[in-house]
Amino acid sequence: MPELPEVEAARRAIHESCIGKRIKSAIVADDSKVIDSISPADFQASLLGKTIVAAHRKGKNMWIELNSPPFPSFQFGIAGAVYIKGVAVTKYKRSAVNNTEEWPSKYSKLFIELDDGLELSFTDKRRFAKVRLLKDPTSVSPISELGPDALLEPMNIDDFVDSLRKKKTAIKALLLDQSYIAGIGNWIADEVLYQVSAPILLLTSGF
């Protein structure tokens, strides 16, 4: 599933291509499993005419800041991905959809056209993502429950080792705990443990 690198790549692509542009039109999928707690019509109406001010990320979650709230927020789930027409965006291989023959893809959950003609689509072919419209994404779950971001808020080595010694759980399970460090998934955890030659079942109290 998409982890911190893929979500950060999506955030950077939006930051580099969409900041300062006004939303001209929007299409929200009629899919209540992904589009959470709001009708497509109300979601669309809330976006129209707004200007994209910034793109933010914490852990595996991203939100787009507009010139006024509420803001679209994305929990990528198993196969969420961002596509910007004409812009290369790194994404998790299993999240990829065919956007060359069909645009927007039939898996698009939120499609946005900006005032300069640029088009953005959030897709999810597995339907485990969540797309929400929130006044303050950082104040509600899941973002409010996350620990420090692995990229943006790294622990220093002494604090990290000290925190490990205070716990008694398998090291990989702890790395996957988003309330401990946000953004790490299976492949990053496996790579970290491989690099330090630590077995996945090693208890953290052994550090």
Rank of each mutant, 00 (worst) to 15 (best):
I52W: 04
L47R: 02
L203Y: 04
P5F: 04
K109Y: 03
V7W: 00
H15S: 13
K135T: 15
D162K: 15
F122M: 10
D115T: 10
P199K: 02
R94E: 11
Y194K: 13
G147K: 05
I157W: 04
N67W: 09
L174H: 03
L120P: 00
K21R: 14
Y194S: 14
Y180H: 04
E102C: 14
V82K: 07
I157L: 15
A81P: 05
D116C: 14
A129N: 08
E8T: 13
V161Y: 10
L120G: 04
G20S: 12
L118T: 14
P142H: 03
S46C: 12
P104K: 09
W103A: 12
A81Q: 10
L176T: 04
A45G: 12
D124K: 02
L118H: 11
A9E: 03
G80Q: 01
W63K: 05
S32I: 11
Q195K: 15
K60N: 07
V140S: 12
Q195A: 13
M62C: 09
E101S: 14
I143K: 00
K60Y: 05
F160H: 00
P2D: 03
D158W: 13
V28C: 09
I184S: 02
S144Q: 10
P70L: 11
C18V: 03
F76E: 03
S95W: 01
I23E: 03
S68C: 14
S95A: 12
T123Y: 01
R126A: 03
I38M: 11
S205Q: 13
A41Q: 12
L201N: 15
V192Y: 07
P40Q: 10
F43H: 01
P40W: 06
T204I: 05
I19V: 13
R132D: 06
I171G: 06
S108L: 07
A198K: 08
V7E: 06
V140K: 12
T123C: 11
N156I: 10
P104H: 09
V7D: 01
F111M: 07
A45N: 12
G117Y: 07
P137N: 00
P72G: 02
E3D: 07
V192A: 08
Y92M: 01
S141N: 09
N99G: 12
S17I: 05
R132I: 05
G117E: 13
K33M: 11
I78W: 08
E8H: 08
F43W: 07
S197E: 15
L176N: 04
I78K: 15
E65G: 12
Y180N: 07
G20I: 13
S205H: 11
L133I: 09
W103G: 10
K50M: 08
I184K: 01
G80D: 06
P137K: 00
G20P: 10
K58N: 01
I112V: 13
I84H: 06
L202R: 14
L48E: 14
A198M: 15
N67F: 10
L193T: 02
C18R: 01
G183H: 04
P70E: 14
G147C: 02
S205L: 09
E113C: 11
Y92P: 04
K21L: 15
P72K: 00
V53M: 14
K109N: 11
S105E: 09
T123I: 10
M155T: 09
C18K: 02
S121R: 01
L118C: 11
L152C: 12
G183C: 03
I157H: 14
I157T: 14
D190S: 13
D124I: 05
K172T: 02
P142L: 11
V97D: 04
